[in-house]
Write a protein that binds this DNA or RNA. Sequence first.
DNA 1: ATCCAGGAGGGCC
DNA 2: GGCCCTCATGGA
Length: 308
Amino acid sequence: MNLKYIHDGRNLILEKIKDFDVAQTVECGQFFHYEKISDGEYALVYRKNLLHIKEDKEKIIFYDTTEDEFKNIWTGFFDLNRDYSLIQNKIIKADIRLKDTIRKGKGIRIIDGDYFETLMSFIISQNKQIPHIRKIVFDISKQYGEFLGNIEGMDFYSYPDVNALKDVEEEEYVELKTGFRAKYLRDAVLKVLKDEKLSEDSLKKAGYENALNKLMEIKGVGNKVANCVLLFSLGYTNAFPVDVWIKRIMTDMYFDGNEKVSNEEIYEYGRKLFGEYGGFAQQYLFLYIREKGKDIRKNKKSRENKRK
DNA sequence: ATCCAGGAGGGCC
DNA sequence: GGCCCTCATGGA
């Protein structure tokens, strides 16, 4: 991809590129270490880097960002060097009905998150809503991470690496409101520390199936969480996480609304249908059905209000 | 107030 | 293998 940008001595200003929408990318639940400042404007943390980013109609501003930081950190994080129109075409070829789905979410990029943070975050995510997951990620960072800076009156901290958590006991995670997941988090830290095959490098080299099975050895990591980690931090774009939302839309589209269909069947079906583009297809479907879900709730609410 | 949230483990059959 | 219950916590 040909990225056009200028640097004004302080901020890096990127000319709008096709298929990149900051809000869609940041807010579709791929990672949780961000704060919305205003429409199209966010502060977010990736490893030891804090970014203040703002998007409008014709440009995207990376505040206080050097050209090197942009090239070495953020183009990778936001996957800006990949041609998404090619992927979209492949997905539409797999199922023409996804055309409308993609049109609504075409600004999504698959982010390249930090492996350990992604692992911990998605262990926390089970049976939780995104705002609460975010709160816990911020609390853990404040407790055990490093101070990175202040944006719009808010302090930001890096997520602790695995070594910073090596002596943190289960009870401390309970205090951070992780509930029954506390023992899973402790197990993840211990296993990542002691098992070399659970290192980022090993998992990246292992191949999809091996990496999936290896991650699932961690307590609290099942098929869905493992697929999220593979997709959002280890570069496996063929991963296909099946959560409640994907289950909802796919039973509708491919199983005639039959709610008896298992998550495993949906997973196998999605993997087969979308192949190496599974991760992208999954994200388009996820954003689409969630927006639709919001609308349904909104309509329901307005109907209820009318009745009063 | 009751139900559900980017699920997974464990027991039972 | 499938089915059902449970796990803390917060938001709608």
